[in-house]
């Protein structure tokens, strides 16, 4: 079998097409390509070229004012031997553990509540729960900085009301991650709930009717109908939350500045701190590329799982 057969070119030949048909197909292809060009240009300018430049820069000791010096893989060695760099991944993982389960569980409960209440009330509920989604991370951070004020912040005032000692929310390693996670959950809850709600609405009501006739109780309906039907929604939310959590920056940067003792320094915040403080950009660029590769790998694995036949059953 020659190469033409393998690539399927022979199969696509079929009956001879007229010249007019070929011209029309060519024109269609051309139109498609023209439509793709702007996106391709943007990707080239803002993703491909910077990526090539970053790869090039990562093997140099890049200084903004004093010239550059070729250092080979020295920057990568520094990154890979930096214990703080690796600890940022643990931090991101801790952040995920705080935010994702709580966010999914709360959203699932709220979505279930919303489909059970009257339409008008549900509308108001939806709008109010979505508001934090449209508030910027900066504003959210400022709001929570006030809430975490040691003396007069709402959080400590409430704790004192129930007889618990005040907490140094942003200066104590035990609570700093929680202090970042709470606003993160608050911000993401609206979007997650609405996606869950649309997933719940897609489940045909006849399933539940049939289950009721068969004598299934609410828990059995949840376990046998709702959760399996929502699997792809859960997977989608899980994937986007994991990738989003790995890239979180704004909240820890503004609320805890990555501290105390690096306990809220996420990978992106670590890169940012090096960009601001280092005399050369080599470490920053190399660390960015390593994080990019790790994230790309993680995303590829997750998407591989999602697109597998098993997940589509």
């Amino acid at each position: 079998m020659n190469e033409r057969h393998i690539t399927g070119l022979t199969a696509s030949k079929g009956p001879k097409r007229s010249r007019r048909q070929l011209t029309r197909q060519l024109r269609n292809n051309l139109e498609g390509m023209l439509l793709v060009i702007p996106a391709l240009l943007l990707i080239t300018i803002f993703a491909i070229i910077p990526m090539i430049y970053a790869l090039f820069s990562s093997v140099y000791d890049v200084s903004l004012y004093t010239g550059t010096e070729f250092v080979g893989f020295e920057n990568y060695q520094r990154v890979l031997h930096d214990t703080v760099f690796w600890s940022t991944f643990k931090t991101a993982f801790r952040y995920m553990l705080y935010v994702i389960p709580a966010s999914l569980l709360l959203a699932f409960m709220l979505a279930n509540l919303m489909i059970r209440i009257p339409k008008k009330a549900a509308g108001i509920f939806k709008a109010s729960i979505y508001i934090p989604n449209v508030i910027s991370g900066v504003i959210t951070s400022v709001i929570f900085i006030f809430i975490y004020d040691y003396d007069s912040g709402l959080a400590n005032v409430l704790l004192e009301k129930i007889g618990i000692k005040r907490i140094g929310w942003v200066t104590d390693t035990k609570y700093a991650m929680l202090a970042v996670a709470i606003p993160a959950i608050w911000m993401s809850l609206g979007g997650t709930t609405l996606i869950m709600l649309s997933g719940l609405n897609d489940i045909p009501t006849v399933y539940y009717e049939a289950a009721s006739i068969d004598g299934a109780n609410a828990f059995q309906q949840l376990y046998k109908i709702t959760l399996p039907s929502m699997r792809n929604v859960f997977i989608y939310l899980l994937v986007t939350s994991i990738v989003g959590s790995m890239q979180v920056f704004e909240l820890p940067n503004l609320i805890t500045h990555g501290g105390p003792l690096y306990s809220t320094t996420t990978p992106n915040l670590h890169i940012y701190t090096h960009f601001i403080n280092d005399t050369s950009l080599g470490y920053t660029v190399a660390a960015s590329l390593v994080i990019f590769l790790l994230l790309a790998g993680l995303t590829a694995v997750i998407f591989r799982l999602i697109s597998s036949e098993k997940s589509m059953e």
């Binding site: 004020d149 040691y150 003396d151 005040r166 140094g168 929310w169 942003v170 200066t171 104590d172």
Partner: peptide
Amino acid sequence: NDVYWANIAPEQAI
């Protein structure tokens, strides 16, 4: 450390 454990100053600066 002594100031911290004497509980005379806020654990988180006001």
